[in-house]
Simulated assay, not measured.
Amino acid sequence: MSEPRLSPRYVPGRRSERFWTDDEKAVLREHYPTGGAKACQARLPNRSITTIFQQAGKLGLSAPKQPEKRTRHEYSPELDERIRAAWPTLKGKGAVAALADTLQVPRWWLTKRATKLHLTMPHKKEPAWTEAENALMRNVPLHDPDRCAKIFREHGFNRSPTAIVVRAKRLDISRRTHETLSARAAAKILGVDDKHVTALCIAGDLVAGRRGSKRLAQQGGDAWAIEPQDLRRYVLDHLKRIDIRKVDKLAFVALIANEAA
């Protein structure tokens, strides 16, 4: 039985809603410089504020500058008593915002004041990363964040999979497994299409394994993992099949040169 589609079926002649029409762009050019994103959204209800901001930026449009309004909200014993009385009764999403509207204070101020009054626990920031953790980042399988988190716990560090992925980005460490090549990387070296390399792997002409990724069947299944020496052996055994005019010359030469390394 075939797997369900991940994307809607293509309909010829149908235009996707994510593309902006000329009429919509005309609305932005007319109203964004004077009324900002809200004025445009009133005329384009199907567009969110975020997408209006993004499209206006692409068009080089600037919204009118808003005057700075800074209001200092002072606390008082009476206000504190109202907060203490109402806070235990808050239930459900939006309850804090509703109380802030009732007290006529910003939501952030109310949350901060509740923390000062010991009505809620303060948000704990992520502890700073140590040199030992940064060094461990370069020795864990970053392509599998769950396994990385387990390794961190085994070393006495409590880091979530998400925190590890974010840290890898900040340290500019690639999460890819550099010891192996993907089908696309191998195809680039050979100067062929990705599907051609996939067919070679399936047929067994090119020795390849799997990365152990969590890709679904609709996404092509688990990604191929090709050892450089196996790709090099394939090239040497089937040199007549390689069209030198189409290969990535630098990568091709580097692959072959490693034979003597």
Rank of each mutant, 00 (worst) to 15 (best):
residue 166 V to P: 01
residue 211 R to P: 01
residue 84 R to L: 13
residue 117 L to T: 10
residue 97 A to P: 07
residue 209 G to H: 07
residue 69 K to F: 08
residue 225 A to G: 08
residue 49 I to V: 11
residue 22 D to I: 04
residue 179 E to Y: 07
residue 119 L to S: 14
residue 129 W to F: 04
residue 5 R to C: 04
residue 94 G to L: 12
residue 112 K to P: 02
residue 46 N to R: 08
residue 30 E to T: 10
residue 222 D to S: 15
residue 131 E to M: 08
residue 49 I to E: 03
residue 164 I to K: 02
residue 203 A to R: 14
residue 226 I to W: 15
residue 61 L to D: 09
residue 156 G to A: 09
residue 28 L to P: 00
residue 21 T to K: 03
residue 40 C to W: 01
residue 236 L to K: 12
residue 129 W to C: 01
residue 261 A to L: 07
residue 44 L to E: 09
residue 233 R to G: 13
residue 132 A to P: 01
residue 85 A to I: 04
residue 171 L to E: 07
residue 225 A to R: 06
residue 95 A to N: 09
residue 52 I to P: 00
residue 199 A to C: 07
residue 189 I to G: 07
residue 67 P to G: 06
residue 10 Y to V: 01
residue 251 A to R: 15
residue 23 D to A: 11
residue 171 L to H: 04
residue 253 V to G: 06
residue 128 A to H: 02
residue 176 R to Q: 14
residue 136 L to T: 06
residue 258 N to K: 15
residue 261 A to S: 04
residue 228 P to V: 15
residue 208 A to P: 04
residue 110 L to K: 07
residue 210 R to C: 04
residue 126 E to W: 01
residue 123 H to Q: 06
residue 54 Q to C: 05
residue 16 S to D: 02
residue 217 A to K: 15
residue 47 R to W: 01
residue 87 W to P: 13
residue 139 N to P: 01
residue 95 A to E: 07
residue 67 P to C: 01
residue 142 L to D: 12
residue 129 W to R: 00
residue 201 C to I: 09
residue 214 K to P: 00
residue 51 T to D: 03
residue 81 E to P: 03
residue 204 G to V: 03
residue 153 R to A: 15
residue 54 Q to L: 12
residue 82 R to E: 14
residue 89 T to I: 06
residue 219 Q to G: 13
residue 107 R to N: 10
residue 16 S to R: 08
residue 183 A to S: 13
residue 111 T to N: 07
residue 15 R to D: 01
residue 12 P to S: 13
residue 74 E to H: 10
residue 62 S to F: 00
residue 45 P to W: 05
residue 200 L to E: 09
residue 80 D to G: 12
residue 51 T to A: 11
residue 79 L to E: 10
residue 228 P to A: 13
residue 102 T to D: 13
residue 134 N to V: 00
residue 136 L to N: 02
residue 2 S to A: 15
residue 193 D to P: 00
residue 235 V to W: 03
residue 36 G to W: 12
residue 247 V to N: 00
residue 57 G to H: 06
residue 191 G to P: 02
residue 102 T to M: 09
residue 50 T to Q: 12
residue 15 R to M: 03
residue 121 M to S: 14
residue 224 W to A: 03
residue 99 L to H: 11
residue 215 R to H: 09
residue 75 Y to T: 12
residue 92 G to N: 12
residue 50 T to R: 06
residue 209 G to A: 10
residue 157 F to Y: 14
residue 205 D to I: 02
residue 199 A to N: 13
residue 259 E to N: 08
residue 102 T to R: 15
residue 21 T to L: 10
residue 148 C to W: 03
residue 154 E to A: 14
residue 76 S to Y: 05
residue 77 P to D: 09
residue 96 V to F: 02
residue 226 I to D: 13
residue 98 A to Q: 14
residue 136 L to E: 03
residue 187 A to E: 06
residue 155 H to S: 09
residue 183 A to D: 15
residue 171 L to Q: 12
residue 114 A to V: 15
residue 48 S to L: 11
residue 173 I to D: 10
residue 90 L to I: 09
residue 139 N to I: 00
residue 128 A to Q: 05
residue 176 R to F: 11
residue 153 R to F: 06
residue 175 R to I: 13
residue 232 R to V: 04
residue 113 R to C: 04
residue 51 T to H: 09
residue 190 L to M: 14
residue 125 K to Y: 03
residue 139 N to R: 12
residue 246 K to R: 13
residue 17 E to Y: 05
residue 104 Q to A: 15
residue 203 A to L: 06
residue 62 S to T: 10
residue 146 D to A: 10
residue 172 D to H: 11
residue 95 A to H: 13
residue 63 A to H: 10
residue 71 T to I: 05
